[in-house]
Nucleic acid binder design. Structure first.
Lengths: 339, 339
DNA sequence: GCAAACTTTGATAACGTTTTCACGACTCCA
DNA sequence: TGGAGTCGTGAAAACGTTATCAAAGTTTGC
C-alpha cells in the first residue's frame, strides 16, 4: 500500500523519495523519468509504480538549473486583447507545444520600459529564445547582452531598428498600395487616410503605400486628407474633411482599430464613403456593406516566427533573414462603391 | 575596464563571478541582488558595478530551486483567440504583474487531455497557483494531487464538477433570463435559441434562463425553436424554423460565436429578426441595427479570479467561495424590433 | 575458454542560488 | 574599561535534478 508519502520541504516527493520507495538508485529514477531506455524492465516498472503511488512530479526548476536552459520560449506582443496579436500568440503557442516547449507571453501595451522589464524577466527564467514585437524606443542595449548570452530572438510585425536579426513582417507598403489602387480603380480621386501615429513602423509604411498609390496614378497627395495620430479621435477631422471644398469620396484606414473607429463615426455621422481597411476583422463580412480589407495573416506570421526561432535553437547560424508576408485584398463591397 | 567577462557553462556570469570581480563574498552579492539593506554602501556599490560590467542576471531556476516555489502562476483558458478569454488573460496578466509574478498561459482548445498535459507542465514548473477554465471531462484526479502538494487553484467561467474550490462565474441563468424577457417585453412570443452544445456548463445555464423566461411569461417552450449543437451550422435549422407554420420573430443567441454566426446567416438569408446575444463584442454598436447584448465582464472576472488566487497564496484559508458576476443588458436596437 | 566489448547500475559531483551560522568589529550603557 | 547587543560579512550547507564514472554483470568474438 502507499506508504506514508515521503516529502520534500516543498510538500512534494522528490526523486530520492521515489528511489527509496522503489528500492533503486537515484540515477535509475532519473533515467526512467527522462525516458532513458537503458533500464531493465523490472526496475522501470518498480519506479513507475513508486512514482504513481507517491504522486511524484519532476521539479523543472532543478532540471533547468542542471541542464542550463529551460524548454521554454517567451513571446512579447503589444496587447493580448488585440485579435491580430492574439492570433500570433495562438500560432506561436501551437508551434511551441509541438516542440514540447512552454510558452510564456506578455503584453507590452506599447510601453518600452515595461517591455524591457518583461524581457529581463523572461531571460531570468532562462528562456531559450524570444519572439518580440518591439515597442517604440525599446533600444538595443538591454537585448544586446542577452543575445551575447545566447538567447535567440525573432522580431515580429516590425524590426528592431539597429539590430540585424530575424524578422517577420507584413508587406505594409505593398498592401496599402494595393488597397488604395483598388479605390482608385473605382474612380476615386479624393481618398482620405485615417491611421495611427506616423512614427510607428507599420503606420509609416502603410502611409507610404497610400502615397505611392496616389502618386502612381497621378493624384496629388493632399495632407489635409491624412489624419495620423495616436488618439483615434476621428470625429472632428472627418467632419472637417467632409465640410471642405473638395471632400473625400473614399477612405483608407491604416489598421484594425482605425477601421472600427471610422465605421463607428460613419454610423454616427450617417455617412457612407467607400472604404478599404488594412487588416481583416471578425464581422467585416456581416456589415452592410461588407468591408473590403487588406488581410494580413497573423497565424502564418506567428508560425513562421516560431519555426524560425526553433530552427535557430536547433543550431542554424545562417545570416539573419527578414520574411515579408504578402497581403490579400478581400473585396466585400465597401471598396467597390463608385465615386 | 570590463575584464574578460567570466562565464558559467551557460555563457552567462554567475554570482560567483560577480563576487570575484567585486572582491566580496558570494553571500554579499546575493544580498545585494535580493535587495537586502544590511550591506554597507561601499560594497553595495562595488557589487552593482560588477553586475553592470559583467551583465549579470540572476538565474531564476536556481533561485526557484532554492526557494521552493516560483513567483509565477498559470492560466489555462479555452482559446486565446476568443476575445472573451483574451480579456480574461489581459486582466490576470495585469494583476500578476502588479504582484511581481510571471504569468504562463495556455489554451486547452476544449481538449481535456491537452489541458491535463498543460496543467502538469505548469506544476512541473512549480507555479504557485493556477487559474483554470476546465474543459469538459477534465476530471479531478490529476488536480487532486497538485492541490495536496499545495498548488492553489481558482476556476473561472465554470466550476469543476466534484471539486469544492474558488470559482468565478457569470450569472448565466439570470443574464439569459433578462435577455429573453427583454424580447418578450417587445411583444415576441416565438423566440428561437441558437447556441452551443447543451452539455456545456455555460450553455446549459443560459438555455435554462431562456426557458425560465418563457415559462415565467406563460409561453410554452417549443423544442423546434432551440438549436444547441457544437458545430454552429445554423443555416438549415434557421431556414427550417422560418419555413415552419409558426416561425420565430426573435432569436436569443447563447454566446459570441453563435451571435456572429447567426448574423452572418441573417445577412445571407436576407432576414432580420429581433436579436439578443449573450456576451458583448466589438462592432456590436456599428452593425445596423446595433446588436442588443447581455454583456459579461471578462476583465472583472479575470481580475477577481487573480486576486482570489493571490489572497489564497497570501495564506487565506477560509472556505472556498463562488463569485457570481451579474450581467448587463446593453440595448442597441436589435432587441427592440417589435413583434 | 578467455579477453574484449557492451550493458545496467548506484555513488557522487556538479548546476547557481538562498540561508544559516559563526566570527569579528562596532556601538552602547554602565 | 568591559560585557551585552548590534551589524556586516563570508564560508558552507542545502535545494532536486542530470551527467560522469567506475564497478559489476552479460554478451560477443576468436
Amino acid at each position: 500500500m502507499t506508504r506514508t508519502p515521503a516529502t520534500a520541504a516543498n510538500g512534494r516527493p522528490t526523486m530520492r523519495d521515489v528511489a527509496l520507495h522503489a528500492g533503486v538508485g537515484l540515477a535509475t529514477v532519473s533515467r526512467v523519468v527522462s525516458g532513458d531506455t537503458h533500464v531493465s524492465p523490472s526496475r522501470t516498472a518498480a519506479v513507475r509504480k513508486a512514482i504513481a503511488e507517491l504522486g511524484f512530479r519532476r521539479n523543472d526548476s532543478a532540471r533547468q538549473l542542471r541542464k542550463g536552459a529551460a524548454a521554454s520560449i517567451g513571446l512579447l506582443i503589444e496587447s493580448i486583447s488585440d485579435p491580430f496579436f492574439s492570433l500570433i500568440n495562438q500560432a506561436v503557442e501551437e508551434v511551441a507545444l509541438s516542440r514540447d516547449s512552454l510558452l510564456m507571453s506578455a503584453s507590452s501595451n506599447r510601453d518600452a520600459e515595461h517591455a524591457r522589464k518583461m524581457i529581463l524577466a523572461f531571460c531570468a527564467r532562462r528562456v531559450e529564445g524570444l519572439i518580440i514585437t518591439p515597442p517604440e524606443r525599446l533600444g538595443i542595449e538591454c537585448l544586446q547582452q542577452e543575445i551575447l548570452a545566447g538567447v535567440r530572438m525573432v522580431f515580429i510585425d516590425r524590426p528592431l531598428p539597429g539590430l540585424n536579426a530575424d524578422t517577420v513582417i507584413t508587406d505594409n507598403v505593398g498592401g496599402a498600395r494595393t488597397g488604395v489602387l483598388h479605390l482608385i480603380a473605382q474612380g476615386h480621386r479624393r481618398i482620405a487616410c485615417f491611421t495611427d501615429r506616423e512614427e510607428l513602423f507599420t503606420t509609416s509604411n502603410r502611409v507610404r503605400g497610400y502615397r505611392e498609390a496616389l502618386e502612381s496614378a497621378g493624384i496629388p497627395v493632399d495632407p489635409s486628407l491624412v489624419y495620423a495620430h495616436g488618439e483615434y479621435l476621428f470625429s472632428d477631422p472627418l467632419k472637417a474633411m467632409l465640410a471642405g471644398p473638395n471632400p473625400p469620396t473614399a477612405v483608407f484606414t491604416g489598421n484594425n482599430r482605425a477601421t472600427s473607429t471610422l465605421l463607428r463615426e460613419f454610423s454616427l455621422q450617417k455617412v457612407s464613403l467607400a472604404l478599404v481597411g488594412f487588416d481583416d476583422f471578425e464581422l467585416a463580412d456581416v456589415l452592410q456593406p461588407g468591408v473590403t480589407v487588406i488581410a494580413q495573416d497573423p497565424l502564418s506570421m506567428g508560425r513562421i516566427a516560431a519555426n524560425l526561432l526553433f530552427t535557430r535553437l536547433d543550431g542554424d547560424s545562417s545570416p539573419a533573414q527578414t520574411v515579408t508576408l504578402e497581403t490579400r485584398l478581400i473585396a466585400r463591397g465597401s471598396g467597390e462603391i463608385r465615386a
